[in-house]
Simulated scan of single mutants.
Amino acid sequence: MSGTEDLSWLRHRGPVHATTTADDLSWIRHRRVPAGATATATRTAPAVPTTPTPAVVPAVPVAPPDTSLDLSGADTSLDLSSGSGTPPPAGDTSLDLDLPDRGTPPDLSVGGTSLDLSGETTQDPVPFSAPPFTTPPAAAAAVAAPAAGPPAFTPPRTSASAPTVLSPRRPSVQLNRLQSGIGALTFEAAWTPDEGFVLGCAYQMDSGWSSVLRPGETFGPLVMDRRAGHQRLRLDLLHGRHLQRLIVFGVPAADPGPHWAGTLLISTHGHARIEIPIEPPPPGPTVLLSLYNVDGELVLRAEAQTVPGRIRDACLAFGYDRIAWRDADTAIPPAA
């Protein structure tokens, strides 16, 4: 191997022939001193290859770059006006685009914030005041609209403290839903002699069936009987919701006399009491009371209407025209 700097022999595992040169240090790998070399040999630095020195070129002085931001010496004007053509003086950095003279510049001293460029004398700013709150039209209309008044018609009701008397000045009363749907509604003849004025009723159901009920007869929720010697009509309200309307009439069996008087008493399950005074009846049937079912509430009205003729005539006068008659006073009972 040639050359003092060639150390490629380190990669080979074969035997190495050591040289006696002072720069050959291959014996370190083999742990022994090569033949002909001394143990005190010192390592010398390998020779550094020399490179040719380039020719010297005379240096040309270069001015350092100008990093100053001072624009005082440069023409930075953006004036695009077509004036006299005279360039602006040095240091003029105006962006004036040949606009008209705006007068005295705004005062930018401490406390002055006006940006008015009109050249007029600045005035004190007007203090801001919020506009007054205005109610929207819809809300204003709702506020201005008067409160809803009571309904146009308030039906008369019964009183728990005193009986309700039906008269020509106050002929009707309307029961509430509890009075119209709980227990029974009782019509009782309070007069003497009891046989002087015989009670009866004509009724119409929501199915369209219509007929007449006489003393001792029963149909559905209606019962005609006696209580304590007095005639009585009883309406069972539990089953009476199918009842549309009825009338209670009286037929004089004999002449009761000019001094005769009586009262038709109506009582509810809650012991509310309604009274209808009865005057001496003229000949012929007299319709004493009418009852109507209005949306689940019963309306009672004192009629005191005498109809010349027979019972059939009285029923037809109040619109009961679907009743089948055996004769002028006897209706055909409904089928069982």
Rank of each mutant, 00 (worst) to 15 (best):
G3K: 08
R11V: 11
G14M: 06
T20D: 15
I28C: 06
V33P: 02
T38H: 06
A45N: 11
V48I: 11
V56G: 13
V56W: 13
V56A: 15
D66T: 07
T67E: 05
S72W: 09
T76V: 15
S82P: 06
G85A: 04
G85Q: 05
P87D: 12
P88L: 12
D92C: 15
D107C: 06
D107N: 15
L115Q: 04
D124V: 13
P125W: 02
F128G: 14
T134N: 13
P136N: 07
A144Q: 14
A144G: 14
A148G: 08
P150W: 09
P156M: 09
R157G: 10
A160C: 09
S161K: 14
V165D: 01
P171L: 04
S172K: 05
L178F: 12
S180P: 05
G181L: 04
I182W: 05
G183M: 10
L185R: 08
A190Q: 08
E195P: 06
V198E: 07
D206P: 01
R214I: 04
P215I: 03
G216P: 04
Q231P: 01
D236C: 03
G240L: 01
R241H: 15
L243Y: 02
F249L: 13
P252H: 07
P252Y: 01
P256F: 01
P258V: 03
T263R: 02
L265G: 01
T268G: 02
E275V: 05
I276C: 12
P282E: 14
P283D: 12
T286V: 08
L288I: 02
L289D: 00
S290M: 01
N293T: 05
D295L: 14
G296W: 03
T306F: 00
D313F: 02
L316C: 11
I323Y: 08
D327H: 04
A328R: 04
T330P: 00
P334I: 03
